[in-house]
Amino acid sequence: MAIFALKRLGVAILVALTVSLITFSMVYISGDPAITIAGEGARIEDIENIRRFYGFDRPIFVQYLEWLWNAIHGDLGRSFSLRVPVADVIFERLPTTMLLGACAITFGLTLAIPLGVLAAVKPNSIFDRAALTLAVVGQAMPTFWFGLTLILVFGVMLRWLPITGQDSWWNFVMPAVALGYNVAPAVMRLTRAGMLEVLASDYIRTARAKGLRPMTVLFKHALRNAVIPVVALAAVQFGFMLGGSIVIETIFQINGLGYLAWESIQRKDLPMMQAIVLILSIIYVVITFLADMLNAFLDPRIRVT
């Protein structure tokens, strides 16, 4: 188990480094950063000064190593537009996005996994068909459209929920639903397929032959095996959700990383965008690592590979 964890950790670090390299290059791919900062029509001397001030004149790998070194120590550079350390802004906004993400994935999984289990227990029943229809509809709806629909129905027409802001838990209901429902269809269908396969397996017959109660057979023996691929999928979906939070936070005016990203794109605030992409990527890498660990815990056969 320890060896497996170390191997996975090694891979995770490698991925994080690659991501950092790509994020760093972003600044250069999007054009000369000095010109971007100076603005169009700036004088050559000013651009030169800016280039020297930010150190853009040095060899690129030196810049990268310096940036990486600083990033590891929590210094992600200064925002072009806000004139404050990027890290301060990011760590102020990060908890909001993490909270939203946690609410959304919790909503998505608590909706999808029980539905998937129930659909598999009674395959081709009316319930199964209804769940499948729901999944198709869910998968077809774009996040932003669903978010706006929620606002229209529950915010404007029914006035049950606040539309924007983040003053109370109620503010998080609609964004979390809008972000999390997207995860549900795929997870539900994978849970259903996994459960169907596992329920037909020999060891489930053994469990029943032992006289175990249906709930023990279903949850102890079947679900644990069926949920293994779901864990990996949920981690990937969480990654998509982080991207989706840019849209959702903008729609619901939530001051998280997503909203910050949207603002930074508008202001062409490169260090900020760079840092946001880096942080989101690292969160994704960490989540994937945790998912691997959870799977190794669930399936002892994974631990030896």
Binding site: D202, Y203, T206, N225, L298, D299, P300
Partner: peptide, 10 residues
């Protein structure tokens, strides 16, 4: 089928 009759997770 002894190979598949035991639950791999426990």
């Amino acid at each position: 089928e002894p190979m598949t009759s035991l639950n791999p997770a426990y």
